[in-house]
Every structure is written in C-alpha cells, then in structure tokens.
Simulated assay, not measured.
Amino acid sequence: MKLATFEIPTSAGPLRRIGAAMDGRLIDLAAAYAAHLDRADPGCDAQRLAGLLFPPDMALFLGSGILGRHAAHEAIEAAAVTGEAFGARTSYAAHEVRLLAPLARPRVMRDFLTFEGHMKQASRALGRGDQIPALWYEVPAYYKGDPDTVVGPDAIVPVPQYCEKFDFELELGMVIGRRGKNIPKSEAEGYIAGYTIWNDFSARDQQTREGPLGMGPSKAKDFDAGNAVGPYLVTSDEIDVRQLRMIARVNGEVWTDATSAGRQFSFADLIAHVSQAETIYPGELWGSGTVTGGSGLELGRWLHPGDVVELEIEGIGTLRNRVGP
C-alpha cells in the first residue's frame, strides 16, 4: 500500500484523514471501512469503529498492527464498489485534497549517516578532511530531530535568517511499525512499517560553526519546516530498498542521480542497535542519511528563495518543495 495523510475541504475547514493512494485517487480509509462494516454487519456502530481503527494520525494507525493493515485492505476493496457511506465520500481525486507528510508528526526522528561516499565528501566540504574515523564503520550513530518541524509535499521551506548556504539532503526514510526492545537483527525487518522520502534541509554555514563543539547539529537542522517528508509511506511488503534509484532536481535540473545501494548499515542493523535497552515505537521516522552526492554541499551549490527542489525515489514517488524567503 501507498499510505498517505491528507486534508479534505469541509464547510468547517480542512479535515485531516489518513488514506491509501490507488489509481490516481486517495481512499479515505475511515469512510471506506465504515462502508465495509455497514455491509458486513448492518446495524453495527460502523462509523465509530472505523474511526477507532483509522484515526487522523498515521502513528496511531500503525500501532494497530496486523489488525489495522487487514482493515485497510478491506477498506480499499469497499471503496472500489461504494462511493459514499454515512454521507462521507470514500475516495477523492488527487487534485481535490492537500497531501500532508504521511507522518504529520513523527513520534521520534532519528537521522543516521550510512553512506560512506557522502561521509567522505561532506567532511571534506566542511573542512574536516576526508579521513573517516574507524568507529564510524562499527557504530551506526545518529542525531535526533524536532518532530514539529516536519512539513509535507509542496510546502514552502523558508531559509533561516542566519543562513547563507542553504541545502537539501536526499534521504530514504524508514518508519517503525511495531513496538519492541532488544530486537535481534534477524527479526528487525518485521518492525518496519514502510518507507518514504525525507528532505533534511540544512543551514551549512551554521553547521560549520557548530561542528567543533562536538554536540551534533542544532540550529543547522532545527528550524521551522526544515524536514520535508512524503509524498507517501510505502509499506515494506511492496518495496525492496536495497537498490532504488534516487534523484534530486533543482528547478528541473538534475543535481543528483544515485542509488540506495552500498549503505554501511542496513535498516535491520539500525533497529538492532537502537533497540538495545530502549523501546522503539510505531510512528518513529528514521533516515538513512544523505545518499552519496545527494546534497548541494557535495557539489558546492546552494539553494535560494524561489528554487523548487524535487526528490524522487523509485517506487515511492516525488517530494516537491519550494524554498521561501
């Protein structure tokens, strides 16, 4: 499934829903599942039950596990034969809705650095040389981001007032789908809900200033709208992320054409590492780190107000955002 979070217009204002993208339409999973329940068990409290399984929060839905995924498939089948239930439409054309980040507010954000090529090139560009510490090959280190800075497709991303070297970062995002702790690598893939695109915007001049402090990025990464995510969350049963084509375009010009292959650590490695003595939860967003060549930093090129950044990953879609003043 391609899961989505979107807004529909109503007389009372925009209404947030979670859904599935099918054949150019967005299926409202709550409305469609209510239609399914009304057919399967006439007279039951279909709307209330559907609302419990499909709240307007992707992280909460993912917490329903196998039950929720099974219900989503039943909702998709119902939407194919029922256009309306209890006065609500079961699907919408893409132009009728506003796509949000599939995880409008991730529970936790962890961003790793798993591509050796980016590690070398970025370190050199930031004036740290291209010698990678031996420990990097052993420990999948990460930093945590601010979930309140997440925006979705077509959102405007303003340049922070203290930044003159504004940058994008093309990353493969993974979303946790099950709660767990001390998870062995052999079982880790069962905890993955799916994958999305993550554009980790960065203030590179601020990053250069902060780096010597040894505390990791702070205002280089933390600013409103600094993390664009989307357009969809593709469930793990429908995509193999070992070798996906990853492309970045700025104003239509290709800046990056890379692949997800060659990561130092797999997502299973990351789950096994992070879950040591720590419980992980559905709705966490984890980044692969920037793909090799997947940033302006590595090219010596920067973003400017008005630029349109498009990140595309094979099998997921295209995440488009405009840089604002």
Rank of each mutant, 00 (worst) to 15 (best):
G190Y: 07
I66R: 11
P56M: 07
A35V: 15
A78M: 14
N199L: 06
V308T: 15
P184K: 00
V250N: 10
A79D: 03
I183S: 04
R16F: 08
L213A: 14
Y232H: 04
L303F: 12
G226K: 03
G214I: 12
H118K: 00
E253K: 00
V274D: 08
V108N: 03
N227L: 09
F54K: 11
E310I: 13
A40W: 09
R209N: 08
L103E: 04
K219W: 06
A59G: 00
F115P: 11
V250R: 03
H118A: 04
G214M: 00
I313T: 10
A34S: 15
L297Y: 08
L37V: 13
M174T: 11
A248E: 04
K2C: 11
G43T: 03
S236Y: 01
L29H: 13
R69L: 12
Q207S: 05
A32S: 14
I280P: 04
G177Y: 02
I192P: 03
V250H: 10
G289K: 05
G194T: 08
K221W: 08
G180C: 02
D23A: 15
G283C: 06
R209K: 09
A220W: 07
T208F: 07
P184Q: 01
L29I: 15
A122T: 06
A203F: 07
I176G: 04
D57M: 11
M58L: 14
L170V: 07
S260H: 00
Q121V: 07
G211K: 03
V108T: 14
G252C: 07
E310S: 15
T10G: 07
S186N: 05
K165I: 05
Q206G: 01
L297C: 05
D41G: 04
A193V: 12
W302D: 07
E278L: 05
V151H: 11
A80Q: 02
Q207G: 04
V81D: 08
E96T: 12
G216C: 02
A93M: 04
G83H: 09
T208S: 14
G180Y: 05
E84W: 01
V234D: 01
M22T: 08
T259I: 08
L26G: 06
D257E: 15
V241H: 02
A50C: 10
Y232N: 01
T82A: 05
V151W: 07
L15I: 12
K181M: 03
R242G: 10
M58F: 09
T318H: 06
A125Y: 02
L172S: 11
R301Y: 11
D200W: 10
F267R: 00
K221G: 12
A268I: 03
D57E: 13
A277E: 10
D222H: 13
G180F: 03
R322L: 04
T318N: 10
R263T: 15
Q206N: 07
A101V: 01
R110I: 08
G300F: 00
K2Q: 13
A188E: 02
G19A: 14
E210R: 12
R17N: 09
L67S: 08
E210A: 13
E314M: 11
Y143C: 08
D130T: 15
V309I: 13
R98V: 14
E298A: 14
G173E: 03
A268L: 00
A21R: 07
N251F: 09
A34Y: 03
E189R: 14
L113E: 01
H36V: 15
L15W: 10
P55D: 09
V308P: 06
D167Q: 12
A94I: 12
I247T: 14
V139A: 05
D200P: 08
V139N: 05
V108Y: 04
